[in-house]
Write a protein that binds this DNA or RNA. Structure first.
Lengths: 144, 144
DNA sequence: TTTATTTCGGATAATTTTGTCTTTTTTGGT
DNA sequence: ACCAAAAAAGACAAAATTATCCGAAATAAA
């Protein structure tokens, strides 16, 4: 469903969100340890997320990754997925016809319609805050 | 979403279904042409589908692939996906935690719940006949 | 029985995704 | 100005997926 890169990205951002809320910057090393991911690869993904302004990266000594508190309530799951996988998450449904739409649908186009729209809806309405809160409260988990 | 192999597999089976309904066996060559897929790769996928009894393969001269008419109404989209991608389609949701379930959910587990179940429902209730009929009637398309 | 045709099976290659390593650049503290 | 810490950037490596090729086995027809 999600690429590995996207899985790591989502988990990383959730962890950064939790720490940022406490005013703490984190390094790829800490992140990778916390979310159980390969460190260097995670760093690469963080670069992409930083380029797409999902996360703020501070270079140099005492640097690290953080998200401005003012941004925390605004970031949606869709923003993270978008920064890493682009719009392939919406395109990747159906049977790979170059031109698959209402007028020229692939065999499963209509079948997937509600699922695809449900996914979009969900990604665009799920906030990072909500995901982070559930981790903090112990309602969900970042690893194992 | 689906692997390429699965995309080709679904399209191939739909085409075979249409032809089988007319009492005609088809070769990987014809199939690949019709669904616009790499021939040798398509043949490999057909092998897998034949092994899983989704399609019947007849070797030798005048051989080819076909589906028994009695089977046509019984085959579900889920059978095809299962034969090629296994259950990865259901597992591949969420963030890749080894143990992700109700008791130990990943951050998006609940978010994806209804989508995941909608998908399963759809795959298990969509029949090959229905998909094939829509192609024949021009309501959907196998290529471009 | 021979031949032509057709799938099967295994080896191999290309591409994409995932992952690692090393060097460069940036930056705060001394 | 210098040093140490940290992210950026790019080259490289491994693994998975996608794709091709070829000889072997099966089978119907002549």
């Amino acid at each position: 469903m999600f690429s590995k890169a996207c899985e790591y990205g989502i988990k990383a951002i959730i962890f950064i969100a939790i720490k940022s809320n406490e005013g703490i910057r984190v390094s790829p090393k800490e992140i990778a340890k916390e979310i159980d991911s390969p460190e260097a690869f995670t760093a690469k993904i963080l670069q992409a997320l930083a380029k797409n302004n999902v996360v703020n990266s501070i270079k140099g000594a005492y640097g690290g990754f953080e998200i401005a508190k003012s941004q925390l309530p605004l970031i949606k799951l869709a923003d993270i997925v978008d920064a890493i996988d682009g719009d392939s998450i919406y395109k990747g449904w159906g049977l790979g016809l170059k031109a698959c739409d209402e007028n020229h649908p692939c065999p499963v186009h209509d079948k997937f319609k509600s699922i695809r729209e449900g996914l979009r809806e969900m990604l665009e309405h799920t906030t990072l805050e909500e995901l982070a809160f559930n981790i903090k409260s112990g309602a969900s988990f970042l690893k194992v």
